[in-house]
Structure formats: structure tokens, C-alpha cells
Design a protein around this nucleic acid. Structure first.
Lengths: 150, 150
DNA sequence: GTATTTGCAAAAGCTTTGCTGCAAC
DNA sequence: GTTGCAGCAAAGCTTTTGCAAATAC
């Protein structure tokens, strides 16, 4: 799996030596198909190594954040205050969170990229992290609401 | 003060009866010149009524959120996990948070408005809340870093 | 042998809740 | 006399931390 190798090698390319536990955690993040919060990451990583501890999870997340390799999301606090993590992608994308059904959709558009550049230029700001989150009703839930009102 | 009357009357226009404490809290939010978190709001509101309780603060914030009159911000978790609140404005704006000096700058641009509309249209999404937060180095701190590197 | 990492449990920080009594209408 | 609000303290949830033991190099 190409992607899996990328995150790991990105870390090592930065001269960071990894323990087996951290490697397991990083692989788990890389292979995840949904947005992971710390607890879910721990649970998933336990399949690789049941001894991994919560503290190690947080410390590894901290490491990856420092290296600028993952992004931290709130997903509009749809499920409380936990954070979610995803591997940083080349192109910025945003997250749509449905307050009704909880669905999370990702959306990328050149307009977001352009906006990002405008922000940096007009404010002389060196952007290290950018997070655009949207909350509301997805198409399905919005349609349902319309029906109920009729 | 015109603005102050607006938030209050917006609430009452929605048929919500307010107690004196809630009115005091809402006035405090309206008049604040910085982004308030719950604790700061409580502290400030105590000048109007020293009996206001933390629980009442959170319950009033919840009310205003439900009514769609305030926005909740994280400000890139610059100071921990607390939330900040601001009166919802007509035009969307975003927040730039400097990881170094902690400065928060607001920035509005038509490009953000356009992006918002594109998001809604392309995803058939009914946007109720949108939050764009940026973290990095403000111009000053970025310049300082450049100097140190030389 | 020194430097890091781990495991554990406790603490910390912010927010929510249960419940009792109080106030409003 | 209902209905809803306030006050208090405790609980809840997620994240962070201190420290001793274990591991890696």
C-alpha cells in the first residue's frame, strides 16, 4: 500500500527514530478509512499491539502534529470535544458535518486553495494550519425537513 | 448603543422571554471587545450581577447557539480547549491565530462568501454554521523568525 | 550508562447535569 | 399551582502530566 509507506517514511525522512508502538500507531492512522479520534485510534491500534497505552497515543499524535504531517479536526463538535486526525493532504479540503444524521463529507475546490493564498498574501501570514468546517443539513436531511413542513 | 440592542431584540423577536441574568449575559457578550470564553464571560457579567452562576452562563450560551445568534470558535486551540463566542455577523469572516504571539486577527473577503455559496450549491448542503480558522505566524513573528535564521 | 520511551494513575481543564429550592405568571 | 430558572456541587469527557520502571543504543 503506497500511502501507508508515505506517512511512515515522511516521519523517518525527518530524522525521527520510531519505536514499534509508534510505528504501529502511525500505520493505523495511515490505513484508517474514517476520521479517527484518540480513543478510536487506540482501539484500532490494539489489533497490532494490545499493550499500547493511551498516553502513547497522545504523545505520538503530538509528534505528528509537530512534524506537520497530520491535521487536527473538530468536525463541528458533532460528538463532543474530542479531536479527529487525518493525514495532511496536498490539496486543502473542507469538512461538511450534518447536525442531523452525523454524516461527514469532504469537499475540495480550487476556490478554497485560492482563498488560502489570498489570506496569506493579504495578511502577510505564514499559514501552518487551516481548518474550514461547515455544519448544517446534508441534502437528504434538508429534504426530509422540507417534507415535514409541508 | 445600537449593536447592543440588536442581539437582545433578536432574541426577544424569537419569542424568548429573558430573565434579568440572561439579559445581563447577553449584554455582556454584545459589548465585549474581545472573543469571550465562558469563564471570561462569567467574570465580566459579574460586574452587572455578581450572583450569576457558571451553569447559567453555559445555559445561556446554549440558548443563543440554538437560536443561531452566536458563533462558537476554537481559535485553533491556542489556549486549550475552551470555546469562544461572538455575535454572528452578516458577512462571514475568518480568524487568523498566531501560534507564536497569540494574536487573533479577523479577516473578511468576498472570496469567502463566494466559497460558502459554492459549498452549499455543489453539495446541496444547508449551511447553518461555518468556521474557517487559520493558524501560523503573523507577519511580525514570521519576520522575527527570518531574522533569527540569518 | 545515558537518553528516551512506556505505563499507570492521577490531575487538569472545560462543560454538562441532577436535584433542590425559588421565582414568575 | 405549573412551569421554568437558578444555584450548587458533583460528575463527565477528553487530554495532559509526574514519576518510576523498562527499553534502546
Amino acid at each position: 500500500m503506497l500511502l501507508r509507506c508515505q506517512l511512515l517514511s515522511e516521519v523517518e525522512a525527518r530524522g525521527v527514530r520510531l519505536t514499534a508502538q509508534r510505528r504501529a500507531l502511525i500505520e493505523t492512522i495511515q490505513e484508517a478509512t474514517t476520521h479517527l479520534d484518540a480513543a478510536s485510534l487506540l482501539e484500532l491500534a490494539h489489533k497490532r499491539d494490545p499493550n499500547i497505552n493511551r498516553a502513547t497515543v497522545y504523545r505520538t499524535i503530538e509528534l505528528l502534529k509537530q512534524l506537520g504531517l497530520i491535521d487536527e479536526l473538530d468536525l463541528m463538535h458533532l460528538n463532543g470535544e474530542k479531536h479527529y486526525y487525518e493525514v495532511k493532504t496536498e490539496k486543502e479540503h473542507l469538512h461538511l458535518a450534518c447536525f442531523k444524521c452525523g454524516e461527514i463529507v469532504e469537499f475540495a475546490t480550487p476556490a478554497f486553495e485560492r482563498l488560502k493564498h489570498e489570506i496569506a498574501a493579504k495578511n502577510q501570514f505564514e499559514i501552518q494550519a487551516i481548518r474550514l468546517e461547515v455544519g448544517g443539513l446534508c441534502g437528504l436531511c434538508a429534504a426530509k425537513k422540507q417534507k415535514q413542513l409541508q
